[in-house]
Structure formats: C-alpha cells, structure tokens
Design a protein around this nucleic acid. Structure first.
Lengths: 377, 377
DNA sequence: CAGTCCTACTAAATCGATTTACTAATGCAT
DNA sequence: ATGCATTAGTAAATCGATTTAGTAGGACTG
C-alpha cells in the first residue's frame, strides 16, 4: 500500500441557515419574450425580430422605430431564447465532447484547447465521461444527438460505428468513415525518446505499455517496436509491463514498475506510457532503493503540468494537448460549416517534442536496475 | 528559469487523405419527426405523443395501436427532439458550470463529482472557464441563461449580483442572496494542519497565501490566523508569501517560496495554499539545498492525485473535492425541483482531513530553513 | 328513442423566435 | 385618375413536441 491514509471523507451537509426566497424579487425571474416586447411597443414580433437581427428586410423601418425597439430591448433586458432559435434554425451551436475521465490531466488539457476555440466561435459543448464503460461509450453519443449537437469530439475514445454527424477524434486511431482523427506522430515520438536514450548509452530499456482501452496504446507500441528495430535495440519481452486498471492515478504505474523490478532482468532506463505512470514508476524505483536518474533513467509521455515539477523533474515526450484540442475544435467547426457533403481530412498529425529534464542521465557502467533491485529485495 | 525546454509545439495540420462524403449514406442524417411518423402510421402526432410518453390519457388507446406505434418508433429509430421538448416544457435539464480553469486538477475533481450526479439524474451541463477575467465572469452566466440552463454551479468563483436562477457555489464564500455556498470547514483545516505542525515541534512556520482572486484565500487565511492565535503561534509577516499570477502550474509556488527564502527569516515548516504551490515550493527548497522534510516540513492543501506520488509524498489537508461537486449538483437539483419559492440552505460545510505522508517531519533542533538558505545563497 | 357514457381518437394552441409572403398607405409620374 | 413604386409594417407558417379541449361513433340506460 502506498498511502495508508485513505479514509472516507465525511460530507456533512448541515444547513446552517435557511433563507426564504423573496417572492417579489423572484417575480422577474422569467425573461421577456419577443411577443411581450412587441405588445408593449405596439408592434409585431416580426418587426422586432427583423430590426434586432439587423436583417436586410428591416431597411424600410425608419431609424426612429428602430431606436424605440433597441431601447425597449435594452430596458427590458430582452434576450432571445436560444432553444427557440435553435429549434427554428436547426442549429444548436453546441458540440458533444466525450472523454474517458475529466480529472486525469490529459483530457483536461485537451478540453482547454477545445474550449478556447469554441468560445471564440460562439459554440458551447456538453461533456460526458464514460470511464471506459462500453455501454456509456455507446449511450452518451445518443444523448448528444437527442440534444441536437452539431458534431462530436471524442478524446481517447474509440468509435466503431459510422456516426450520423461529423466527428473528430483526438488520439482515436480507428479508421472509420466520417471520423477525422487527430493523432500524434508516434514514430517521431518513439524516435525522439529511444534515440535520446541510446545516445545516453542505454541498451537495456524497459517499457510500460498503456492499458488496452487506451486508444494510443497499440499505435504507440507499434512505433516503439519499429523504431527500436531500426535503432538496433532488442525489446526484451520480460522488460515490458502493461498498465492495468482504469484509475487516473500514478498507482497503476507503480504497480507496473514493481512487476518490472520483480522479473530481475537488468535495465537502465524506462520509457513509460505517460507522465502519470512514470511518476508512479519512479516511486517504485525509489522504494526499491534505486536512484533516478543515477540507476534508472525514466522518460514519461505527455508533459502534463506535474511533469516539470516532479522530483526529479521528468524528462518526457510532450504532446501538444492544448493544440490538439484546439485543432479538433477548428476542424470540427470547419466540417460542420462545410455541410454533410463536404470533403474532410481523415487524419491530422501533430508533432511531439522531447523535453529533457532531470529524470534521465547517462547509463550507469555496471549497476543496473534489475541487479540492484534483486539485491535490495 | 525552471524549465528551459519551453518551445512552441508545431501543430502541423496536414491532411493526409481526403474522403468524399457519401451522399446516399448521409441521406438518413436527419432523424424522423413525430409528425412524419404519425403520417406514416395514419395517426395524429397527438396519439403518438400520448402513447410514447405513456400518458394516462393513452388509457383508451387499444394495445394493438400502441404496439404499432412502438414498433414504428423503434423501426424508424425515432428520438424526440430535445430542443422542441425543452422549449415546450420550459425545462432544459441542463446546468451551467463556471470554473476558473479546467486543467488545474482542482476544478476537474469537482467536475467529476458534479457529472457523476447529473448523469444519474438525466441532466447535462455546459462548461465555461473564465480564467479569472472579470468580463468573462460576468459574461458567461448570461450565455448560460440564454441557453435556458436551470441553474448554475460556480466553482471557486465569486458571483456578486443576485442571480435570476438557483446558484450553488463551491468555495464561493460570498454571502449573496440566492446562492448556496459549499465550503470547507476552514477552521478545522487550519486546526488539523497547525496542531500537527506544533505537535512535531515546529514554531517558525511560513505560509503561502492564495492569489487574491481565489475565493478560498481570505476565508482560509482568516481561519489560519484565528487558529494560530489560539495555539499561541505567532505569524511573522515576513514569513507570509502570496501566490501571484494565474498560472495553474507549480511555478507560482516556486516563486513564492523563493521570496520566503530571500527574507532570511528562519522557518522549519511551510503551510502552502494548495498542493500545486507546495510542489513548487519544494522545488525551491531543494534548489536552495534544503532537505524536505529534514530541514523544512511542507504541508499542502487539496490532496490532488499528484500529491501522493510526489517525491517526497506530500502531507496535505484533503478537501473532499469530488464530494463537494456531487453535493453541489445534488443541492442545485433539489433547489430546482423545489421551485423558486422554496427554501434553500445558504451554507453547506464539508470536513477536511489531514493526510500524513512524507513531506513533514519533526522540527530540526538547530538548523532552520532561513539560516541554511542564507548560508547556501 | 333521447340522453349519457365510453372508446378512440384528433384539432388547435402552445413554447419563442424566424422567415416568407403578403397589405395598407402614401408619393410620384403619366 | 390610374398605375407603379416605395414605405412601414403585419399575418401566418415553421421548427418539433406537448397538452387542452374537444369530437365522432357506438353501446347502454331509462
């Protein structure tokens, strides 16, 4: 056990004071409708709509009337009902976003990029986390469709069926018609990491693969295998561990690293599936009496906020997550405005970057992780 | 500079292949309406609506007709248009959630709790991050209202005006009519942390306050001051630093800790505003040649995922963030279903918990942070 | 055999805005 | 005095579902 202080947090909901809602202040709760405003002005809703939307058909309306309308709209704080508008225009200006989990750092970064772009364009999104449950992965898109989203962004989530709407998938990897995939250049990522490790003198390299449900897992592993072969590195099957379980905490990496240590095969470096698992692995190494990077070098993946400030600061392959989110939003809006017949890109590739910090070092001469681990256990 | 590898990530959007949308497959894009279904069955939309919604008024409809309707709905994959329904029923089953920033770990945890409860109840939410910009804090709620959200959850965000809708604020602290505040018991939190430090023998305790925009800052500081007085601890003004800037990274804590070290006042412990800043502070201490917890003990706040896996593992005051999110959602839905006249709690308090890990230790006898820092600088 | 009840439905209004297709009144030219 | 254009608007349909207030026709009752 890593943390013995796991206890239930007592959530005591004790209403300290009660407040009686004030009827008169509440009265104005319901906003005015166009019709009400029109009646008040002695005009028809049509006229108001034309003027307020600055339609070319309002050309014949004299400025004086327009001013009256604007003044009244202002005065009554008129705000058009978005639902009514959406229904009529068949445009919801809303997207659905499906993520495995909000609180894991990865999805949040992507979301941040998505949001920044959508806000600019007057779009909102509704968000759902499926937590890797297949029934939710199937169910949520339907709920999104019911709410008339105009498109879907799927983050690290596999969609199998051809969707009835434009879909952009971030790290999706499945070749489904109608879906644009935004993916990292995994070959380049593997190359950056492995070449750097080799350059530091590492030959016995251990790996932590992602969970099977993570859509990056197989593509990234394929790239690693290819690049390793090209660089003349042998991947020892016993030095490959896999993340298990869907916790978004470093614990899964800790467990995987323990397994690697247990095989007693020596290694001088670890390439982890992501920063979170790298952090867990470092914990496992420290507990085994191994120094990072003195005895084992560790490279993470993603470059989440925590990576730079971990101790030791994590060397990692940065994914431009924010940009991937933004690109996803841009691409999806472009597809939406293009209409269903429009052409769309099937794959958009973004480039990784090697960020060298303190968790990697030249390979030690003699002492390797496996041997030390055996000694200390 | 902490991390020299800050470089722009090149986002190369290169469409590798283009796909021509398939017209025939797209045809069925628009879903059937109730009216179309009714025409197809030779019945009126009314009848279908009654039957499909299992209205008591459908009592007189023979089972055979009902079955025909159900079969057709199934066959044509009929799904009622949520917008139309919302417009008519004046219910959107949607909330607005306003957070400072999705990607900081704190908001994401709260969101996770919010979402878990909302999904159960058939609600969705739209999300906006204001990034502490006052104009956005004022603007986004209006956009939410336009979209007819039924209520608002504000996370770590001050609302000043009386809202026209039920609002639940997580760590809001402002006493505004119409808003339910969900707050941590900060007195208890301060007590847990300070008593523990005193128990370990610490007397010279440094503090990092939160940014002024963070709504927890003043309440928490007030509690710390009160509890310190009660415990007979003198808070040295020169041992109080404040976070500055709105970056969600540990950097702000690093800067604050540097300032503390620069004052050359000795201290043996630090109580940081949150885990993120504690992690930054630890980095500053390490760089100054101070050992954590040997020379300085550090207590964080929140217990984000990263806390347990930092090196050293962070002792912290856990906020039940997930529960706070869930409680916010529960409370808001309760208020919504109660109607505008209903009573509602003004404050709900949740309890913190001290999580002891490796970043705290008994106070050193002679060497204190300030002195060592002076020496090493 | 008129009145009432029941069955199996339906017409029309509604939610709130947009949009198409008008109209009534005036001015101007012929 | 008639025709035509322009001005200043409005009525009604529409988006898609829900809901209120019916109705047509048959069975049953007194």
């Amino acid at each position: 056990m890593l943390d013995l202080n796991i206890a239930m947090c007592e959530t005591r909901g004790m209403p300290t004071k009660k407040a009686k809602a004030d009827r008169s202040a509440r009265k104005q709760a319901r906003p005015v409708s166009l019709k009400e405003l029109a009646t008040h002005l002695g005009l028809s809703p049509t006229t108001l709509s034309l003027v307020l939307n600055d339609s070319p058909l309002a050309g014949s309306i004299p400025q004086e009337t327009k001013d009256r309308i604007f003044a009244a709209a202002e005065g009554f704080n008129y705000r058009p009902n978005f639902l009514a508008r959406s229904l009529r225009a068949r445009r919801s200006y809303t997207l659905g976003v499906l993520v495995p989990e909000v609180s894991d750092g990865y999805a949040a970064m992507v979301l941040s990029g998505v949001e920044d772009h959508l806000m600019q364009e007057g779009y909102f999104y509704i968000l759902a986390s499926h937590r890797h449950k297949p029934e939710l992965i199937d169910h949520y898109p339907n709920l999104f469709f019911d709410r008339r989203v105009e498109g879907l962004i799927a983050v690290d989530t596999q969609c199998h069926q051809r969707p009835p709407l434009p879909v952009v998938s971030v790290s999706g990897h499945e070749d489904v018609e109608g879906i644009t995939n935004i993916v990292l250049d995994h070959d380049r990522a593997a190359h950056l990491a492995l070449e750097y490790l080799v350059h530091l003198g590492h030959r016995q390299i251990a790996f932590i693969k992602g969970q099977d449900f993570s859509s990056d897992t197989s593509a990234r592993w394929q790239s690693i295998s290819d690049v390793a072969a090209r660089l003349g590195i042998k991947i020892q099957p016993s030095l490959v561990a896999q993340l298990e379980g869907d916790s978004p905490s470093p614990e899964v990496g800790y467990v995987a690293a323990k397994k690697l240590l247990a095989t007693a095969k020596p290694f001088t470096a670890l390439f982890a599936f992501n920063d979170i698992s790298a952090i867990g692995a470092i914990r496992a190494f420290l507990e085994a009496g191994l120094h990072v990077p003195g005895d084992v070098s560790v490279i993470g993946f993603d470059d989440i906020h925590a990576a730079a400030f971990h101790n030791p600061a994590l060397t990692t392959i940065r994914q431009p997550l924010w940009q991937m989110g933004k690109l996803a939003a841009e691409t999806l809006l472009k597809r939406i405005s293009g209409g269903p017949e429009a052409e769309y890109p099937e794959i958009l590739t973004v480039e990784p970057e090697l960020v060298i910090r303190q968790s990697t070092h030249e390979a030690p001469r003699a002492v390797t992780a496996g041997r030390r681990a055996r000694k200390s256990s």
